[in-house]
């Protein structure tokens, strides 16, 4: 039953940079419509893992499946796989959107321009339709008035909300967040998390690398705790936050006062 396949399934993902092991046998399933929060100390491989999902980093070994279809590789008829061509990879990436820590908006385009850029030029959607869609998405994050502004005139929180609209404009199957609030002033964190909460409620499939433990506890359906390149604990957030299974997780949570 293809419908039962998880939206994202990582299987034994390993990643090495110049012989240094960054990820080791990471396996994680994210069910359709659910939110997975990836937590853990800095340098534990959380972001690298997230970037493997849309192939910004190629896993050294292991597999990523998006709704059952392999990412980055194509099964060859004789068995085994071959790497995707640049075009195939670009097409596959349109199914996943990403929100970055430092927003990564394109400064030469207006807010509206940023949101419609990929739908028009990658997906080939008619411009009018993309604009209408973009205005709706911007209205929903409270930024319809900023459509014609350039990114450098926005606050950090506003930039990140634009980045979320840009990601949603692709109508992705999965939304990846790479520490979306880490570069924000404390006062702006709330407005971004609020948007993310709403998305989770509406059944968007999300993978969120975050240090916001309160958000993870309230919103996540699954928690994955990373340490030294491995997932050492996964499961229900309530269980994780009240009774972590491992010493490492307990020590980690203590530092957040949990």
């Amino acid at each position: 039953m293809a419908d039962a396949a998880p939206a994202v399934s990582a299987r034994l993902v390993c990643k090495q940079f110049d012989g240094i092991e960054v990820l080791r046998d990471v396996s994680l399933d994210v069910a359709k419509g659910s939110t997975a929060c990836i937590v853990g100390p800095s340098g534990s491989g959380k972001s690298t893992f997230l970037r493997c999902v849309n192939w910004l980093e190629q896993p050294t070994t292991g597999q990523i499946l998006l709704n059952g279809a392999p990412m980055g590789v194509v099964p060859s008829p004789k068995g085994g796989t071959r790497p995707m061509t640049a075009k195939e990879l670009a097409l596959a990436r349109t199914r996943v959107s990403m929100v970055f820590q430092h927003f990564a908006l394109w400064p030469h385009l207006t807010v509206l321009g940023n949101v419609i850029e990929a739908p028009v030029h990658v997906l080939g959607r008619p411009r009018d339709e993309a604009v209408e869609d973009a205005r709706r998405l911007l209205a929903r994050v409270g930024l319809e008035a900023k459509a014609d502004a350039f990114p450098h005139t926005l606050s950090g929180g506003q930039k990140q909300r634009v980045a979320i609209s840009r990601a949603l404009a692709m109508k992705p199957e999965v939304l990846l967040f790479d520490e979306p609030t880490s570069a924000l002033d404390p006062e702006m964190v709330g407005e971004v998390l609020e948007v993310m909460r709403d998305l989770a409620k509406e059944g968007m499939t999300m993978m969120v690398v975050t240090h916001e433990m309160a958000f993870a506890r309230d919103v996540a359906d699954t928690i994955a705790f990373f340490d030294a390149g491995r997932v050492i604990e996964t499961g229900d957030p309530k269980a994780f936050f009240t009774a972590p299974q491992t010493d490492r997780a307990r020590r980690f949570l203590t530092r957040y006062g949990i």
Partner: peptide, 12 residues
């Protein structure tokens, strides 16, 4: 990061 954002959106 701008290039990565472009790649992540499926740009060649």
């Amino acid at each position: 990061d701008q290039l990565e954002a472009a790649e992540a959106c499926g740009m060649t």
